[in-house]
Computed example of a mutant assay.
Amino acid sequence: MTAAVSPQRAPFGARLAAAMTEFGPLCVGIDPHPGLLAAWGLADDIAGLRSFSLTVVEALGGKVASFKPQSALFERHGSKGVGVLEEVIAAARDAGTLTIVDAKRGDIGSTMAGYADAFLADGAPLAGDALTVSPYLGFGSLAPAVELAHETGRGLFVLCLTSNPEGKQVQHSVTTTGTSVAADMAAHAAALNADAASRGELGSIGLVVGATIGDAARDLGVDLAAVNGPLLAPGVGAQGAGAAELAQVFGGARTSVLASSSRGVLKAGPSHEALQRAALVAAAEARDALRDTPNG
């Protein structure tokens, strides 16, 4: 895509790379599960949702590379819950921390364009800095989101190789060209990041790749290093994957990995200080696990 980036905003890939360098390769999920709300002494209602979510932003804003609010856990509270998600996105923006809205949207035509407008357009209350999307109606169905993300300097994280067992049914399947579905998705992302690669920058079209998938990327011919985009990886550090596992999954692409941690950090709350300590530990664990050499 050649659309001009919003003049007020550098491309998402470049902004994320800078944040990862400054704060470490950690994305803190904002996942207001009923169990976590209860553990914090909060009710599973709008007041509890708002208190929980904004406490995370207040404690960690400006101290981590990014936040990832899970849209479903706000949507379950109806329109008022979506309103809290809007507050969280705005608060993170004010704190100077990148936000990846985890909504996993995917559709066709004007419906996908509507999702793009909701989550990626300048001025949209739900627009963070990036959005997770599902390509399983065909990668081309994501075109409205790709175009708007490039126009506004935002990013996308495309589901590629997830760690849930059910994902294999689609992601490990072979296409009519003889490549795996996952490899095809990664190749499309790489093509969209080609301009950034030519400038020596991290691209803005990333992938979601589980950190505990073992040899799946290699076995399926998925060239993660060639993507030249951020790789959002649940399961790093205390969540299960250490240096050896990450070397196995990501190989030479480890410098592009953004480790995602939700409960591992959030269970330390509601104390600001405890959340900050947990995030520092998680960021250090992720940085150590993603060294260029497993024992380095």
Rank of each mutant, 00 (worst) to 15 (best):
residue 139 F to K: 13
residue 99 T to N: 02
residue 179 T to P: 08
residue 179 T to A: 06
residue 244 A to W: 13
residue 34 P to A: 05
residue 114 G to W: 04
residue 234 P to L: 06
residue 101 V to H: 00
residue 184 D to H: 12
residue 141 S to W: 11
residue 142 L to F: 06
residue 207 L to D: 01
residue 9 R to Y: 10
residue 260 S to R: 00
residue 4 A to Y: 09
residue 53 S to Y: 06
residue 212 T to V: 04
residue 230 P to N: 12
residue 127 A to V: 02
residue 85 L to I: 00
residue 225 A to T: 13
residue 101 V to D: 08
residue 200 G to P: 01
residue 40 W to C: 08
residue 160 C to T: 08
residue 151 E to Y: 00
residue 223 D to W: 14
residue 131 L to P: 00
residue 218 R to M: 05
residue 272 H to T: 10
residue 283 A to T: 08
residue 237 G to E: 14
residue 285 E to L: 11
residue 12 F to M: 02
residue 50 R to H: 05
residue 284 A to R: 13
residue 166 E to A: 13
residue 85 L to K: 00
residue 220 L to K: 10
residue 203 G to A: 13
residue 29 G to Y: 03
residue 102 D to T: 06
residue 233 A to W: 12
residue 163 S to G: 05
residue 221 G to F: 11
residue 116 A to Q: 00
residue 241 A to T: 13
residue 286 A to E: 06
residue 234 P to K: 03
residue 89 I to E: 00
residue 14 A to H: 06
residue 69 P to H: 02
residue 265 V to W: 05
residue 263 R to A: 03
residue 151 E to W: 00
residue 51 S to L: 09
residue 161 L to Q: 14
residue 132 T to A: 10
residue 295 N to V: 08
residue 97 T to Y: 05
residue 152 T to S: 03
residue 190 A to G: 03
residue 201 E to R: 07
residue 134 S to Y: 14
residue 107 D to S: 12
residue 110 S to Q: 11
residue 45 D to R: 09
residue 224 L to W: 13
residue 279 A to K: 09
residue 64 V to F: 03
residue 271 S to Q: 05
residue 167 G to D: 02
residue 270 P to W: 07
residue 125 P to T: 04
residue 60 L to M: 14
residue 122 D to T: 10
residue 165 P to E: 01
residue 119 F to T: 00
residue 114 G to E: 06
residue 137 L to R: 15
residue 244 A to R: 14
residue 202 L to E: 05
residue 184 D to P: 03
residue 212 T to C: 03
residue 165 P to R: 04
residue 135 P to D: 08
residue 108 I to K: 15
residue 67 F to V: 11
residue 255 T to F: 10
residue 30 I to V: 12
residue 283 A to Q: 10
residue 114 G to R: 01
residue 206 G to L: 03
residue 185 M to T: 14
residue 24 G to Q: 12
residue 68 K to H: 03
residue 224 L to V: 11
residue 141 S to F: 10
